[in-house]
Design a protein around this nucleic acid. Structure first.
Length: 205
DNA sequence: GAGATGATCAACT
DNA sequence: GTTGATCATCTCG
């Protein structure tokens, strides 16, 4: 399986976001390689995007990693409880990133079930099985992603993204979620997900 | 199934 | 003191 390199991320952010759908996020947990297919993403397009942490060139200790090289990992903490997993995209100093909103794990279901609910996968009810990684805060808990990943990159054996040539899906474009404060930017179609995938966090009516 | 609410913290006013 | 790129839980019905 081919690993994605820096050239993949060092492109237009909307294009990278769409191209990330169907790719596989690999994280080493408990010495196992956990494989998760990316099924939902959002693009945050830098200085002119009011929903982005880097809107208008804002630079803080929290968001400074967004100005770094493509392929870096930006993890931040929100609502007092949740981590958000982002990948820095486009050229150095652009301040752009893609938020991973949902994944579908393909193996190691007991590891992720224990991270999320403290029990084995077989002991989960149907609601828990369906909600195990279908949201940005949930997948971070399931994959044990927290701020210790902030500033690392996706080119180590600890965490990387691979391509298994899975292309058999349709991409749906929609508005981003939870950014109603962002004025005109809240209507941008910067959210992309795989049609009919059960792990997508929210489907249009 | 849908709507309201609380959890709880870092950044910013 | 307020708010947010969220989620689990509660209350209805």
């Amino acid at each position: 399986m081919k690993r994605l390199d820096k050239d993949f991320f060092n492109r237009d952010t909307l294009q990278v976001a769409k191209d990330l759908l169907g790719k596989i996020l690999v994280i080493k947990l408990d010495n196992e390689k956990v494989h998760s297919r990316i099924v939902e993403v959002e693009a945050y397009a830098g200085l002119n995007d009011k929903a982005s942490h880097t809107y208008n060139g804002k630079r803080t200790k929290r968001n400074e990693i967004m100005y770094d090289e493509a392929g870096k990992i930006y993890v931040y903490f929100i609502y007092g409880m949740y981590n958000m997993f982002n990948i820095v995209t486009n050229k150095y100093n652009k301040g752009e990133a893609v938020l991973i909103r949902a994944v579908q794990t393909l193996n190691c279901e007991n590891i992720i079930a224990n991270n999320r609910y403290g029990k084995d996968y077989i002991d989960l009810n149907n609601y828990q099985k369906l909600n195990i990684t279908n949201g940005p805060g949930k997948l971070c808990k399931a994959l044990n992603i927290d701020r210790k990943f902030n500033g690392k990159d996706l080119f180590s054996s600890q965490i990387y993204i691979a391509d298994d040539n899975f292309k058999d899906f349709e991409i749906i474009e929609s508005k981003r979620i939870g950014i109603n404060y962002a004025e005109e930017a809240k209507d941008y179609l910067y959210r992309f997900y795989i049609k009919n995938n059960p792990m997508v966090s929210k489907v249009e009516k």
